[in-house]
Design a protein around this nucleic acid. Structure first.
Lengths: 230, 230
DNA sequence: TCTTGTTAGATTGTCGACAATCTGATTGTC
DNA sequence: GACAATCAGATTGTCGACAATCTAACAAGA
C-alpha cells in the first residue's frame, strides 16, 4: 500500500469564494479604508444573492478587516497610526516566541522552504510587482510561524498580518515608486540557518523596523487630512 | 457642560443576540466539544429564521469556537491537549508583554478596578458558583490586557481566552467538586500593585501553571476515549 | 460476502421578497 | 432665517421557499 497524500479539495461554496474576493480587494487596496460596502451593488456585481455575501462579510468582520454597525453598514477598517504601532510591537514579541519555538524544529525541509520563499521575494522584486512583493515577503516571514507547531500562534499571526498587509499595500500605493532592489532579507535568512538563536531574534526585531517606520509616518500623514472612502 | 459618559446602546439585531446565546452555551459546556449544531432545530427553538442564525455561526467560526465543513455541518471545536498546551505557552508570552505595557500606566483607577475584580472572584468562590468563578478569574486576569492600551493585544487575548474558558468550564463540569476555597489570586494582585515588575511577570507565569497542569491531564484523559457530541 | 449503484430523507447552501431602520430633503411653523 | 415634524428613498435585517449536497439504507451483481 503506497502512502497517498491528498490535499483537501477546495471549498466549493460561493461564500468561500466571496470571502477570498473581498479579502483580496481589501489587501490590495482596491477597497480603501473607511469605504462602505453596499450589499446590493456588490451582490449584483458578483451575480450572487445577498445571503452568502452577508455571511462572507461577517467572517471578514471577525477577521478584523471590516467593521459593521447595525443598520448603518459595513466598512473597511480605518488605518490609524496607533493600530500600526500596536500591531508592530506585538509582532516583535510574537516573532521572538516563534523563532524560539521553531529553532529546535529546523531541518533540511525547513531550509529548503526558506530558500524557496526567499527566491519568490527576489523574483517579485525583479518583476517590480509591489503587491506580490509584499505578499511574498510576508510569506517568507511567516515560515517561522508555520514551523513553530503552535496552531494558536499561527492563527494569531495570520490575523495580525492580514491587517499589516493592508497597511503595507496602502503605503506602496501611495508612494508608487520602485521598491528597493537590494535584497533586504539576505541576513534574515542567513541567521535563521545559523546557530545563534539570540542573533536571529535580535535581527528579526530590526529587520522590519525600517519598513514600520516608513509605514508609521505615512499613517500619521493620513490622519492629518482624513479622506473618507473612495 | 458636564462630561457625559454614555455607553453604546445595545445591539438590537437578532444576530447579535444569537451570537451571545450560542457563545454562552458553548462556554458553559451546555454545548459540548464536537457536537453538531442543527440549523433548523436551533432556529426553531430560538423562533428565528436561519439567516441570522447562520450569520451568527459564521462569526463564532471566525472566533474559533465553532468549526464548519461545507455541506456537512458546523460543530463545536474539539479539545485537544495540544491546543491547550499551545494556548498556554502563548498566554505566558502575552502575559509578560501585557504586564510590561501596563506597568507604567498603573494609577489609582487601576488599583481600584483590580480590587473590584478580585472581590468578584472571592464572591463567586464563596457562592460555590464554579462557572462564575472561572468567568471572574479570567476577568481579573484580563485587566492587564485592557489596561495595556494595545487594541490588537486585547483582541488577541480575548480570542485566546474564550477558548480557555471553554476548556476550564469543561474541566470543572467533569470534576464537579467544590473549587479551592483559599484565595489563589492574593499574591498576583499584591505584586501588580508593587514596584517589582519582573516579580509580577514571573509570578504570572506560575500563577496559572497549576490550573493548566490539571487541565492538561484532563484533556489527555479525554483523548483516550473520545466521546463525540452529546 | 464484498463491492458497487440507487434512492429517499435530512441538512446545508442560496435565492428573491418583505419588514425595519436610517438618511436626507422637504415642508410647515415660529 | 432657524428649527422641528414629516416623508420618500435607499439600505440593512429577516423571512420562507427552493436547489445542491451529503448520509445511510437498501438492492443488485460479482
Amino acid at each position: 500500500m503506497v502512502k497517498t497524500e491528498f490535499s483537501p479539495i477546495a471549498d466549493t461554496t460561493r461564500r468561500a469564494e466571496i470571502v477570498a474576493l473581498l479579502r483580496r480587494a481589501i489587501l490590495t487596496g482596491q477597497l480603501g479604508p473607511g469605504q462602505k460596502l453596499n450589499e446590493l451593488r456588490i451582490s449584483e456585481q458578483m451575480r450572487v444573492s445577498r445571503a452568502p455575501l452577508r455571511e462572507a462579510m461577517r467572517e471578514l468582520v471577525q477577521e478584523g478587516l471590516l467593521s459593521s454597525i447595525p443598520y448603518a453598514g459595513t466598512f473597511v477598517i480605518d488605518v490609524t497610526a496607533k493600530d500600526i504601532d500596536d500591531a508592530y510591537s506585538l509582532n516583535q514579541v510574537l516573532d521572538e516566541f516563534a523563532i524560539a519555538r521553531t529553532w529546535p524544529l529546523r531541518d533540511q525541509r525547513f531550509f529548503d522552504e526558506l530558500d524557496r520563499r526567499h527566491e519568490a521575494v527576489k523574483q517579485a522584486t525583479r518583476n517590480l510587482d509591489t503587491t506580490r512583493q509584499i505578499e511574498t515577503a510576508l510569506q517568507l516571514h511567516g515560515l517561522i510561524y508555520e514551523w513553530a507547531d503552535n496552531s494558536v500562534l499561527l492563527e494569531t499571526w495570520q490575523r495580525l498580518i492580514s491587517r499589516l498587509q493592508m497597511y503595507f499595500a496602502l503605503h506602496q500605493h501611495a508612494r508608487n515608486e520602485p521598491v528597493p532592489a537590494e535584497d533586504v532579507h539576505e541576513t534574515y535568512v542567513r541567521l535563521l540557518k545559523g546557530t545563534d538563536m539570540g542573533a536571529a531574534q535580535r535581527h528579526a526585531r530590526e529587520h522590519i523596523h525600517l519598513d514600520f517606520e516608513q509605514l508609521l509616518s505615512y499613517a500619521r500623514g493620513l490622519e492629518q487630512r482624513p479622506s473618507r472612502g473612495a
